[in-house]
């Protein structure tokens, strides 16, 4: 069967930029969300790295090849529900880019990632903390009155909530890919790892 329908055997094949940004953001979420200590130097470095990858992916959404561009996977809840109904009733359509349910998840992940990164940057304006910088920051901090400290607490709280939601979304994303791959018989992970059409000819 895989020989008869080589294209249907795997999902879309992604270009290098999509693949690199995807896996580096995924790694950053796992490390910063589950492993390292919030506010540590490593946490901040990884956070800025993830922000850079997010910026690159969003830029790629405007100037990248067709299947990476936003225009090829619009946000539509009704299309996502249609797609899920089809998948669970055994009707599978192939998509060149993200499938409609995947698109909704992608925008949700990007939104939460943006919120997490933005609040993280506000918490730590200086990306590469060095001793004297921290002292300078401490002086700035000491000039702040109570109102601003309260504001900072809100930002910190938002950062933590957004980060937890991001982890939940990521888990749902992984589960969604697993379920769809199983039900449709297409390995969606392969295109994100190996990308380009060689995966088809080796089928």
């Amino acid at each position: 069967m895989a020989v008869a329908e080589p294209i249907a055997a795997s999902g879309p094949s992604w270009d290098p930029i999509v693949r690199i940004t995807h896996w580096s953001v995924a790694t950053a979420i796992v490390i910063n969300g589950l492993i390292d200590e919030g506010g540590s130097t490593l946490h901040i470095w990884i956070g800025y790295g993830a922000l850079a990858m997010l910026v690159l992916r969003l830029l790629w959404g405007f100037i990248g090849p067709a299947e990476a561009r936003f225009s090829s996977f619009p946000f539509s809840l009704s299309a996502a529900i249609d797609h899920l109904t089809n998948v669970f009733s055994g009707h599978h359509k192939t998509h060149r880019s993200h499938n409609p349910a995947g698109s909704v998840m992608v925008y949700a992940l990007w939104g939460m990632l943006t919120l997490t990164a933005a609040t993280g940057v506000i918490l730590e304006t200086e990306p590469f903390p060095v001793e004297h910088r921290q002292q300078a920051m401490a002086q700035v901090d000491s000039h702040e009155d109570g109102e601003e400290n309260e504001l900072e607490e809100i930002v910190e709280e938002t950062h933590e909530i957004a980060a937890n939601l991001l982890l939940i979304l990521a888990a749902l994303h992984v589960a969604g890919v697993a379920v769809e791959s199983r039900l449709s018989g297409r390995n969606l992970v392969r295109g994100m790892i190996r990308g380009q059409p060689t995966s088809r000819s080796q089928e």
Binding site: L56, P127, A136
Partner: peptide, 25 residues
């Protein structure tokens, strides 16, 4: 080319963050 693009983006974010930090301080 993809690796170069990734590196360039990392540098850009580094510099932008550095500029913003300097502006504040």
């Amino acid at each position: 080319l993809a690796a170069l693009l990734v590196l360039q983006t990392l540098c850009t974010v580094f510099f932008v963050a550095d500029v913003v930090g300097d502006l504040i301080l």
